[in-house]
Amino acid sequence: MVICAVHVPESAEAAVDRLAGGGWVMGGGTVVMPLVNSGAAPVTELVSLRRAGLDGVEVRDGVATIGAAATFTTVGERPELAFLRPALRTIASPTICNQATVGGNLFVAQPYGDLAVCLLALDATCEIAGPDGRRDAPVAGVLASGVAAGEVVVAVRVVLPQPGTWYYHKAMRRRLNSAAIVTVASVTRADGGVVASTRIALGGVASRPVRAGSAERLLRGRPLTHEVLTEAGEAARGDIDPFDDAYASAWYRARVLPVHLRRAFLP
């Protein structure tokens, strides 16, 4: 369809008002604009968040509140969020990182959207604005079923992981900015040599980022050894529903999952 209007509201509330008339929310445009350029976008109006005052990052008491329109570059430049830099580098070139936004990444189809995989591992909370006001929702829910029509994710809240508890590994065709074959992100805390708590999120292995609940259950109370991690990776095959694409077959993704889950912890 041909775009008839691009709205650039100056607040989250104004964006919600605009959305009442239909159209798509657009963060940095890296996902929406390719569809617009090819005529494949099934909308005639866009609501850009570029000027809605949602591009900041605030860190207080160990909690980061990241505006939905904060770019990957903005996120990577915050010292408190430096643990995400290796992940951001695998997602996109520095140029695209200047445009792609945290909120937009929640709505990117797999095998893209690795920041969403990280946010799932971090058990992030989404702040959502809608016609009835604001509400919070776990990022898992937003990844699973999106937001209601007329709603906008305005921020993502993350409890910063303790030093030494963040793990990230991505298997891809190139060393930089390529789609995921398997992405593994985890917050795992060991105590006395065994896993005290763990959250593991996987990308590239289902239609959306998923938690590897089977692997998490297997790891609790056990040491992060080669054998235990391989066992957990094999168990994680029960948590995935992989697909074929140009990057890898579903068979291949399932086959290599245990290797990459292990490498996230033991490179």
């Binding site: 691009v6 604009m33 390719p34 350029n37 850009s48 000027r51 695209i96 200047n98 445009q99």
Partner: peptide
């Protein structure tokens, strides 16, 4: 947004101009 040949600087930072709606 995949080839980069339209890259220009917006406030000093590179962006692919094919993915920027000019109103924004």
């Amino acid at each position: 947004g995949a080839c980069g040949t339209c890259t220009v600087l917006v406030d000093g930072r590179p962006e692919v101009s094919c993915l920027v709606a000019v109103e924004t």
